[in-house]
């Protein structure tokens, strides 16, 4: 039982981080129709900025996190201005290479700035644990789950209860019509890139205290966030969150109860099965990705 609880909570926490990254994809995708391949490196950059603010600027931890989120929102806008806006009307290939290039530049900047040696970001709760049904659960995992829940709720409200949300949904359902209705596409795409940048930083500071921080930090979460988007059908917030939790749980429970050697494979096998059997996603209705 303890073992199950332990693996379950870990799986949910991992899934929660994938969900935050995947929501960033979803936002940008809804508003602009493209996939931002720089998302993983934005996660990494967020963690490094938090480390810099906490160690070099000696800010309190939460202040450092806030700096990271704000900085990444700005970086998101910059990416939109320099790597997306100028080529918005070009083919999707050009956009893909451009976001890839932006990612490469971000990564190179991190290496030049902070070096390649693995390092670490402190978590606000250190290594404290709580006992739940006999299992020792790291408090950081509970924090990740809690913050993600708040974040998902806020995004849902933003999507469904504000003018901004209505406009994003309008863009997603019919771009051309939305444009003709006077939705300011350029402003919307800047806003969503900024918001997605902030979400990446959030994922970064949540996940960094649970592992060594290297320039690859965001790569895994990005890959699993893709998988989560697939499972969720790339459509709704709920779908993406369920997909992400499924990925995290399959990885942990599959590793725990089937064969641990192949723990990394299970999410991908699941993903392949979903694509094979239900190509529109478990919760999705229609595929609308421009890719």
């Amino acid at each position: 039982m303890e073992r199950f609880v332990s693996l379950f909570v870990t799986g949910v926490a991992q899934g929660a981080v994938f969900a935050v990254v995947a929501l960033g994809f979803l936002l940008i995708h809804k508003a602009t129709g493209v996939i931002n391949f720089a998302q993983g490196d934005l996660v990494t950059l967020g963690a490094y900025i938090a480390i810099w603010a906490a160690t070099d600027l000696e800010l309190p931890l939460l202040g450092a996190y806030a700096v990271a989120v704000a900085a990444l929102a700005a970086v998101g806008v910059l990416i939109e201005r320099f790597a997306y806006a100028p080529i918005r009307d070009r083919s999707i290939h050009v956009v893909v290479i451009s976001t890839l290039g932006a990612a490469l530049v971000i990564r190179a900047v991190i290496v030049l700035w902070r070096g390649t040696s693995p390092t670490r970001l402190r978590g606000p709760l250190g290594f404290e644990v709580v006992e739940v049904l006999g299992a020792r659960i790291p408090k950081q995992n509970l924090l990740i789950i809690g913050v993600t829940a708040v974040c998902v709720a806020a995004l849902w409200l933003l999507f469904h209860r504000t003018q901004f949300g209505r406009q994003v949904r309008a863009l997603a359902s019919d771009r051309m019509a939305a444009q003709m209705q006077g939705i300011r596409v350029a402003r919307m795409s800047m806003l969503t890139f900024g918001l997605a940048g902030g979400l990446s930083a959030l994922a970064g500071v949540l996940i960094a205290p649970t592992r060594a921080v290297t320039v690859d930090l965001g790569f895994g979460p990005m890959l699993y966030a893709f998988a989560a988007s697939i499972l969720g059908g790339m459509g709704s917030i709920g779908g993406v969150v369920v997909g992400a939790l499924a990925i995290g749980l399959v990885q942990q429970l599959g590793g725990g109860y089937l064969s641990p050697d192949y723990a990394e494979v299970y999410p991908f096998v699941l993903m392949l099965l979903v694509i094979a059997l239900r190509p529109q996603g478990v919760l999705g209705s229609e595929v609308r990705a421009r890719l």
Partner: peptide, 17 residues
Amino acid sequence: ERSFEFNATDLTEAVLA
């Protein structure tokens, strides 16, 4: 005995063993 990928980011299962 537990093995994992070189880029493993969570060892809860392995450590519980």
